[in-house]
């Protein structure tokens, strides 16, 4: 049974020549990888390209995986690096801003305006929440890509700082520093939201939105409800 095979088993099988193993491994984690790629790049097309680049690299270099980190961490590292490479290359090539805030609905929306947790909201609340997300994502795209990637992993996807550091291949302190600087810049960019009425609080409950679909085999890593519990 494929479900009984661990990620490490599947990767080893792929290295040994199993033609289906890598596809199974990817299928387990693709939604999570997609979420990280989409939020890191801020653009569905770039996210798809970066994800594909990362998969090609992971497929080819699976034999170099030493097992020092979890397979999922390694996969995320490869994909995030590919996405960052895409962003840097685009910046160099065009000497231009990052992609526009386009909602490319057919290929994955930059702004998730209708996730399952919105089912609990009335239309007015839904609209406010959608608008708030749009503003947050627009502000996020103004950050340097390294800060953005750190915030996506830690504050959006809820990875522990130590694992984010492994994914980003940098020191724990660097991740903390990037997160801190990124939040400070976001606070300036999003000051109107911070000063908004408490009724618009996006998280009446701490942690992830309710009824969020499980996107992979990993345990849910919701953002910390109590920042003091994860002093990044």
């Amino acid at each position: 049974m494929d479900a009984d095979r661990s990620d490490a088993d599947l990767l080893a099988a792929h290295v040994a020549g199993d033609p289906d193993a890598f596809g199974l491994l990817f299928a387990r984690h693709r939604d999570r990888l997609w979420a990280v790629a989409l939020r890191t790049t801020g653009d569905a097309e770039t996210a798809a390209d970066g994800l594909q680049d990362g998969l090609v690299a992971a497929f080819r270099r699976a034999g170099s995986f030493r097992g020092d980190a979890a397979v999922t961490t390694w996969l995320h590292r490869v994909v995030v690096n590919a996405c960052l490479d895409r962003l840097r290359a685009a910046k160099v090539r065009r000497a231009d801003a990052l992609p526009d805030d386009l909602d490319d609905g057919g290929r994955g929306s930059v702004v998730t305006a209708n996730d399952e947790s919105d089912e609990h909201l009335d239309p007015a609340e839904h609209g406010l929440r959608s608008e708030r997300r749009t503003q947050v994502l627009a502000a996020l795209r103004q950050l340097p890509v390294e800060q953005r990637a750190a915030l996506v992993l830690v504050d959006m996807e809820g990875y522990p700082v130590s694992e984010a550091a492994e994914i980003l291949d940098c020191a724990v302190g660097t991740v903390k520093s990037r997160c801190s600087r990124g939040r400070a810049r976001l606070a300036v960019l999003l000051r109107p939201l911070l000063d908004a009425d408490d009724e618009t609080d996006p998280t009446p409950e701490s942690g992830n939105p309710r009824a969020t679909p499980d996107v992979g085999s990993m345990s849910r890593r919701g953002p910390p409800g109590d920042p003091a519990a994860d002093p990044v």
Binding site: V136, M156, P223
Partner: peptide, 21 residues
């Protein structure tokens, strides 16, 4: 800081990968 983290949390992507991708 808590508010920023909450806003980021709320903006996380929760939809599955689009079928064409």
């Amino acid at each position: 800081e808590a508010r920023i983290r909450a806003l980021l949390s709320d903006a996380r992507e929760t939809d599955p990968m689009p079928a064409p991708v």
